[in-house]
Structures are given as C-alpha cells and as structure tokens.
Amino acid sequence: MNIAVAIDQIPQDALPSASEAGPAPKRIVVAYGFWIFLLSDIIMFAALFASYAVLVRSTAGGPTGAQLFNQTTVAIETVCLLVSSYSCGMMSLAVNSRRYLRTYLGALITFALGATFLSLEIREFLSMIAIGAAPQRSAFLSAFFTLVGCHGLHVALGLIWLVVMMVQVAVFGFAARVQHRLLCFSLFWHALDIVWVGVFTVVYLMGVSS
C-alpha cells in the first residue's frame, strides 16, 4: 500500500522539475520529430557521399571530374540555393508575424531561386549525357549522378511542397497546423542547403582541384 502511494506521488513531484515549463509546446515537438527525419535523410546522403568518395577514381578510362565540371555553373547554383535559404528564412519570419504579402513574396523568391538551381542542374546533366558522360559510362559517373541527382530530387520535392504550402496558406490562412508544416518546410529547405555545401565541396571543388 505504502509503495503504491509512494509511486503515485513520485511522478507528480518529479514531473514539474523534469521540465520547468511543463510539456513542450506542439511547435517544439513537431520540429523535433522533423529534425529526426532530417538527420536520417542526412545519414542516407552520408552513404552516397561514402560511395562517391570510394568510386571517384574509378573512371574506367572515361572522363574525370576535372574535365566535366564547370565551376561557373556550380558557383551560380550555390548562390541560388544560399539566397533561397535566406528568403525561406524571411518567409518563416513573415509567417510568425502573420503577414500574407511577405509570406507570398518570400515563397515566390524561394521558388524562383530553387527552380533556377534545378534547371541549371538538369542542363548540366543533359550536357554531360550528350557528350557520352552518362551514368552507365563508369562507376565514378554512376556515383556522381546518384549523389547529385538525389539532392536535385530533394530540391524538386521541396518545390512541390512549397507550392502545396502556399495553397494551404491561401485556403486555411495561418492556422496552427499550417504554421507547423511551414516550419517543417523551412527546416527541410535549410537542411538541403547544408547537404549542398558538402556536394559542391566534395564533388565539384575537390574534383576540379585534384
């Protein structure tokens, strides 16, 4: 009996001290759950980076990275993605202060820069395939197209997600659930930029300089 009473009392005494402000707000919990997903996504990219690093010299007599990569294109892509990350941050500030015009403007700039990035990347892929540097040419090119293409696929999905979110803002307004989804989107978009830092350093800059 005494033990049961004691067990009943301990959690009630212990709970407020475990977290001084009580249970975390929904916004924090949602962001934490999405953060776990992003980390698992980054671990998947780590596997692709590892296979690229292992296969980068296995060109099978085909073209190497130094012969294929155009640094100007990569620089423009990098700036596009970085500024779109910034405009995505501006959009989440506008969402927090519930301003429709600034939210749409931030989303429009983010979408335009993301689409520019994606079209430059697709153009680069097509020009490489046109000169015979297709994924099936060598292990190096297979790893290159898998790694960079997977990042590009994430950007494409992010653009679709952004359009869906703007429709939701237009229909539902700044409801709590829409704000949570927009928070997840901005985390996703910033995480993609972090992966791109790895891509342009490991694939393009180290590929050109070695």
């Binding site: 980390l39 698992s40 980054i42 780590a46 596997a47 980076f49 590892a50 296979s51 690093a53 292992v54």
Partner: peptide, 15 residues
Amino acid sequence: AFGVLIVVVVIAGTM
C-alpha cells in the same frame, strides 16, 4: 550529435 557520429562512422569507415 548522434547523427554526426553515424555520418562520420559511415564515411570514414567506408573509405
């Protein structure tokens, strides 16, 4: 921190 640990193990271990 856990994610960074796994990333380092995967990349450095594979190489």
